Lab assay of single mutants.
Amino acid sequence: MPSETPQAEVGPTGCPHRSGPHSAKGSLEKGSPEDKEAKEPLWIRPDAPSRCTWQLGRPASESPHHHTAPAKSPKILPDILKKIGDTPMVRINKIGKKFGLKCELLAKCEFFNAGGSVKDRISLRMIEDAERDGTLKPGDTIIEPTSGNTGIGLALAAAVRGYRCIIVMPEKMSSEKVDVLRALGAEIVRTPTNARFDSPESHVGVAWRLKNEIPNSHILDQYRNASNPLAHYDTTADEILQQCDGKLDMLVASVGTGGTITGIARKLKEKCPGCRIIGVDPEGSILAEPEELNQTEQTTYEVEGIGYDFIPTVLDRTVVDKWFKSNDEEAFTFARMLIAQEGLLCGGSAGSTVAVAVKAAQELQEGQRCVVILPDSVRNYMTKFLSDRWMLQKGFLKEEDLTEKKPWWWHLRVQELGLSAPLTVLPTITCGHTIEILREKGFDQAPVVDEAGVILGMVTLGNMLSSLLAGKVQPSDQVGKVIYKQFKQIRLTDTLGRLSHILEMDHFALVV
């Protein structure tokens, strides 16, 4: 994948999101292997301009796509893939009243899908469409860049269908997702969380590099694949309309690839034109409109599966009536509230959605109805927002919020430890010299600072030695090549209790 991002070429006709291997024109390309080798690009942008032909009021008969309808489940399912879809609609009884809503608040519980998330729908649909058009064949390999849930859905379907599955996901995604993927037989590649989507090191860039190296491999490409919004247009939206008897006044959905909100909203605009569509985008993402909503100094966020630093091709923002931004604290607070007060075992993005819903639905009156999409299960986040310690460490809970008995030293300040200034190293000294210094002084790690004293990161003896043994660096290389740029900081005025929580999850903390 090139470091400079080429513009994806656009073909003359058809839909841009065809499933299957992508040609340089962004659509299915038939021909000899030699032709494909000559024409197939190194990668295709996940934010390529959409060429979708959908228009409100256009006859369904003019759609270029294969459409399906929700099917009634048999008493005995032939395999677990038949437990994807037909998820329950559940009334939220307490939270709406707590925040003064007059309307009825309903939750579409997508964590009841077989793999635990709304992404099971698009995973199965992308595979079925690729099999139907002859792209996927027995023994082929599926590769997908994902925040985890699409990966789980694909790995689940691949396990049943017999495909090899490789999932490329950023490091910030939970260990629970990784464990589930491994249990399903998927191979996992992790990428830096802070890598831009168009960087060769991003999950998108690495996935395309693997595709170019592995024979008979395919990126189904949830960011561009029409099967993504079509899955929701054909099934999720129809289920909502049936469950609500066609009567709903507002739908609120958090947005990642945009397939969920695009597919549902398009069908609702056709069948229930008075329904307002509300999009939820986390602070630090750029999906919301108008652009002024996205202006923030924050560039990272903890909530998973929603928000991006690019506009995915499948996201149709014209069908969203209003956007709201959400933050991590309210997302996790509301997710825990949904679990504790409503018994809905949902993930953090569901918290984002409901946090926005109780604001947006203030305009609705008694007798009206708001539906929220709860995308995934708490299963993926047992060591994250479900953990009091994690919430404390991230600053989303305060010590006084917890009532468990603490040891005698818990409320003492870090400054009472009488710490001395640490050994520091410059980023320009060599790895070999740094190892000598650390061994001589008896230290395992040291902060790396520039000549102005600005902290650049941390270097550890173990990481340097393993990097040297693996051949990633040489003793003569500058130590700046092996620094940890993500590390926890703590102030002298913070409590030892807070430091204790940090050290339970990290090997060190830097006192500043």
Rank of each mutant, 00 (worst) to 15 (best):
P6I: 04
E9H: 10
E9V: 12
T13Q: 09
G14A: 07
K36S: 03
E37N: 11
L42S: 05
L42M: 11
I44K: 13
A48Y: 09
A48C: 11
P49Y: 05
P49F: 07
C52K: 00
W54N: 06
R58Q: 15
P59N: 11
P59L: 15
P64G: 05
H65I: 04
H66R: 09
H66K: 05
A71C: 04
K72L: 13
I76R: 02
L77F: 15
I80C: 09
K83T: 10
T87M: 00
P88M: 04
P88T: 08
R91H: 04
R91F: 08
L101D: 01
K102P: 04
L105A: 06
A107I: 04
K108F: 02
F111Y: 09
F111D: 01
N113A: 03
I122Y: 01
R125Q: 08
M126D: 06
R132H: 11
R132Q: 11
G134D: 07
L136I: 10
L136E: 01
T141V: 14
I142R: 01
I142Y: 01
E144I: 05
L154K: 01
A155Q: 02
R161H: 09
R161D: 03
R164N: 11
I167A: 09
S174V: 00
K177G: 00
V178K: 07
V178F: 15
R182L: 08
L184W: 00
G185D: 01
R190Q: 06
P192D: 07
F197V: 03
P200L: 11
P200I: 08
E201F: 08
V204E: 09
G205A: 03
V206F: 09
V206G: 08
W208I: 08
N212V: 10
E213T: 14
I214C: 04
P215F: 14
I219P: 00
L220H: 02
D221T: 07
D221M: 04
D221K: 02
Y223R: 01
N225A: 04
N225Y: 00
S227Y: 12
P229E: 04
A231Y: 05
Y233M: 00
T236F: 04
A237N: 01
I240M: 06
D245A: 02
L251G: 03
S254L: 04
V255N: 07
I261G: 03
G263T: 06
I264Q: 02
A265N: 06
K271Y: 06
C275N: 04
C275V: 13
